[in-house]
Design a protein around this nucleic acid. Sequence first.
RNA 1: GGGCGAUUAGCUCAGUUGGUAGAGCGCAUCGUUUACACCGAUGAUGUCGGCGGUUCGAGCCCGUCAUCGCCCACCA
Length: 888
Amino acid sequence: MLEKTYNPKDSEEQLYDAWEASGAFRAGNKPDAKPFTIVIPPPNVTGSLHIGHALNNTLQDILSRFERMRGRDVLWQPGMDHAGIATQLVVERQLAEKQTSRQKLGREEFLRRVWEWKAESGGTIMRQLRRLGASCDWSRDRFTMGETEADQMSRAVLKVFVELYKQGLMYKDTRLVNWDPRLQTAVSDLEVENIEVKGNLWHIKYPLADKPDEFIIVATTRPETMLGDTAVAVHPDDERYKALVGKKVRLPLSERLIPIVADEYADPEKGSGAVKITPAHDFNDYEVGRRHKFEPLNILTLDGKINDKAAAPYRGLDRFEARKRVVADLEAMGLLEKVEPVTHAVPHDEKTKTVVLEPMLTEQWYLNVKPLADRALESVRSGQTKFVPERFADTYYRWLEDIRPWCVSRQLWWGHQIPAWYDDKGNIFVAETEADALAQAKAKHGHDVALKRDPDVLDTWFSSGLWPFSTMGWPDKTPELARYYPTDVVVTMFDIIFFWVARMMMFGLHFMDKEPFHTIYIHARVVDERGQKMSKTRGNVIDPLTLIDEFGADALRFALAIAAAAGKDLRMGRSRVEVYRNFCTKIWNAARFCEMNECKRVDGFDPSALKGTVNRWIVGELFRARDEVTKALETYRFNDAAGGLYEFVWNVYCDWYLEFIKPVLNGSDEAQKAETRATAAWVMDEMLRLMHPFTPFITEELWRQTGEQGPKRESMLISAAWPDYSKIARDTAAASEMNWVKSLISEVRSVRAEMNVPPASKLPLTLKTANADERAWLDRHNELILRMARLDAAQAGDAFAKSSAQIVVGDGTAGLALEGFIDFAKERARLTKEQQRLTAEIGRIDAKLGNEAFVAKAPEEVIDEQREKRAEYEAALGKVTEALKRLG
RNA sequence: GGGCGAUUAGCUCAGUUGGUAGAGCGCAUCGUUUACACCGAUGAUGUCGGCGGUUCGAGCCCGUCAUCGCCCACCA
């Protein structure tokens, strides 16, 4: 017996365990089937499940379950990312609370602590994914980094690095990088967020060396950097300054003499037309400095203080402190021409958004990604890999087309340590193991030499870029790799197209020689119910687990799926989840209805051999729903798939079918009753299948409980087959008939409501129609029409001369004669008119094309256009005719 | 400065080859007929952002303008 209400909490955990124990999540148990593979976007080991993960993983799970039911050998590869900076910061914070630091502990001990922390509390998110119902193959769980370098996941990273080095694509270079002075590490361009802030533009007077009373004025938003100026640049064509080029200015505060140079970088339109050049602290100035062979003068320490290369009074000051001092001193010297308030973009740390990044001259490892990017571009351009929705391909192109070398080294401890060793002469030995490096060094020097390993680690995204093949055992030649690479689809959000998707494309093509996936599905960002981005500071974060607790995982999943129109912001909140909890309740109650009315599954049910119109109709509707859901899922239209199911389950099966069959179930025609019971149960069963990818828990629970009635189940629902009705003939006659009945009932109800007829009063109905079918249908469905439209008696009146159908509700006596026109009659009239119009239109075109003079004279495009138009009309006519047929 | 997206019922949003405008919530009226009030029936509300154009026909295609949002960009 089904409980009166479904309580998700009572069964979700148990069901999940049963699935897992059954082995249904595991890949490889259908060796003859075609594989279907998704690799999870590995969440940070430090993370916990937020609503965005819930969406991301719900979509992946829907695809996994769908394809599993369709018979594919599904591998949904789970795993986590070591998340270099994020994780290191978490552990450093813990250390700070214990009054210690990573520096005090030393590298080895610090790393031991991080691993310890990972073992204890890392991976919370993986447990949370289970609550969501994620059907990952947990037996293949992976982490982007091994505990030792001999571990396969780490070997993959080292091997990639070494290969790229051998190919000349990985190299060391000293240049400006985006530097985080707090963490004291380089970050890549992608990790920089330029934030508009209010600042000042200071116009400073630089006195000419030979005429101290004359000045050249430069403007800057960062006056402290003038301590590192090496020149002033003006445009070569700028008449105002032509005479000054080659002369020198006396740099205020430093008293250094610096040259005035001509460079096209200086824009005569901007400021005074003269610009200060600080190669060590500005990306543009660095380039100018290179052109003019200026030695960059670095005036900052790695933690953002003024160093001892700068003028003495400022040494040791924090960069912002120094700015104030510089401005104050300039003002005191009368060298401040003016101060202009401006808003300008300032580079910030992408994560915290508080730390201002500094261009810093350091030596780092770079990967020349250009050749890899070209292949990655070609794959999408050629359609080998497709973006859904397509427009994201443009974003991808634009970034890859002018991609710059990727700074892959980070001055952190948590991560893959760069496999490069140095001897004391500065020679570099890149190797997968220290032994190799030593051997290389020995070969070079002819004797053993001591080597020191590069202390830096790799950017976190370096290892996640290998995810589609590293998780499958690469660089070893494993059977998994052969079977499951390339994967099918990657499901992710637009903000990591560059960070992750592009890198996987590049590495996949470079090392596996195949695109890592054929489809890149980009889903929306989840925002709150008012459309605001969720953030901790706003306090509008919705915790998916709270929602699961309150409404069940199915409700949350369905709410996410039905709102997931590709690539658009998706608003989510409590009330939305509640709606789909109600939907789950609806299914549950429908199942209870079936149970109470002894609608049991029967052996050998044949949907094509049904006699009752109502049963034939619902089966036809089911076929249509199945096709719609299947098609939608095949094209990643999750919202359409979920919407189609919602509509079918609630508005077709529950609202109409179950009402239609009540008279039969309460009647005395045993044969009809038996057929109806079997049909109701069969359709319910099929609905459970179709619903399962979206709402796995409640459907599995109903599958289990209804399994006790009727023939024994062969498997759990998770392993059951997706419906395929392709071999069953479609019955459109039943649809015409039942649509007519539905329209009639709706129309009567509508007329009653409009006329304020009390529900208790049952009225007679007179139907006047010229259509013989309609009279037959009225007779056949007399009982249920009476019941559902609350009528007293139904009779078919005489045919009208005009063929519009009309109903008269009431006994025809004063005050009780309500008239209404049935929708379908109007619809039929309209369609008929349309049909005539289209036919005429086609006739006209045919005549035109049949006219020799016209064909001889008209240009080819015009002929083609006419043909095209004709085809369009033909198609429209087909649609109209079909619709008419449905109406009868 | 470039690029992209959005603009449809009070609110949140669907609308896939152009063919009489849809859903959910909310609202109004009625209803407790034994699956379900986490329910049922019925209903009201739209110049589909503005203006042009293509077409027999445009929410959908083209042009343009407006407002909002996002991404990218080294500008003093």
